[in-house]
Each structure stands twice: as C-alpha cells, then as structure tokens.
Design a protein around this nucleic acid. Structure first.
Length: 125
DNA sequence: ACTTTGACTATAA
DNA sequence: GTTATAGCCAAAG
C-alpha cells in the first residue's frame, strides 16, 4: 500500500485473491480428493468456525466465479444429500460429476456416504 | 448501521 | 422414519 488508499475487497471479482472466509472455504474444497466428498459443517469446523456451515454454503454459491476452479460437487450436506444440485448449470450436473468419480448417487443421496466422506479436520495436518 | 438471507445443523416432538 | 424450530454469522441489500 503505497498510499493511504486501500484496495477494494471485492469478493465478487473472480480475479481478486484475498484471505477472506470465502477464499478459505475454496482452498479447502480444492483439497478434497477425487472420488471423495465432504460436508459444509466439516469445512466450517476445519476453519475454526464450527457453526458457520451456512456461510460455507453461501461461499459455494459464489464458487463458480473464482479461479482456480472449485470442485463444488464434492460438498454435500451432513447426510450425504446433494442439497446444492440446483446451483449447477443443470440440476443433474452435480450427480453426474460425482458418478464420474465413482461415487454412487441415488435420489440425490450419496450411497454408503461414510465410505466416501473426507474430513479435512482429520485428513489435513 | 440495520435487516435479511441462506448449497446448514442439532435438537425435539 | 418425518417435520418444526432455533441457532448460527458473514455477506448482501
């Protein structure tokens, strides 16, 4: 900051990188391994804000505007349900992407959820 | 500065 | 199994 004028923290700008809650969420989601899923609550807990699961969901709502891309389809709710499917380009894209990674989905529900669950609080050191 | 909103979750009935 | 309700809190309006 050469002058007193501060940079604008425009989270809506895909090219603007900052250390915001949103960006932290995106960083965690990018670490979810191929073929695994995690939950909004698990991400919130990992970020030290256990009760901010709704904020994680909100961050995901903007996830399509940031770079590098965020594998938003790997985030489901605590029961393994595909609650965010309506926010994809088509309502079936989320399920298709998961199936492509070998994750069985039936009726918007990840089958055998615990087998595919990846908890950042455990997996990330 | 205040109010509303959510891709959530825990609990209760 | 279900639905209802309250708490949550950062960002958007």
């Amino acid at each position: 900051m050469k002058h007193s004028k501060r940079l604008k923290n425009n989270i809506t700008d895909p090219l603007f990188r900052e250390e915001s809650f949103f960006e932290r969420v995106y960083e965690v989601v990018r670490l979810i391994p191929h073929g695994k899923v995690t939950t909004y609550g698990a991400i919130a807990r990992f970020l030290g804000s256990a009760s901010s699961a709704r904020m994680v969901g909100w961050a995901m709502n903007h996830s399509h505007t940031v770079l590098p891309p965020v594998p938003a389809h790997r985030v489901v709710n605590r029961n393994g349900k595909l609650t965010g499917k309506m926010h994809f380009r088509t309502p079936f894209e989320m399920e298709q992407l998961l199936a492509k990674e070998g994750i069985p989905v039936k009726n918007d529900q990840v089958q055998d959820f615990l087998t595919y669950f990846w908890d950042p609080s455990i997996e990330l050191v």
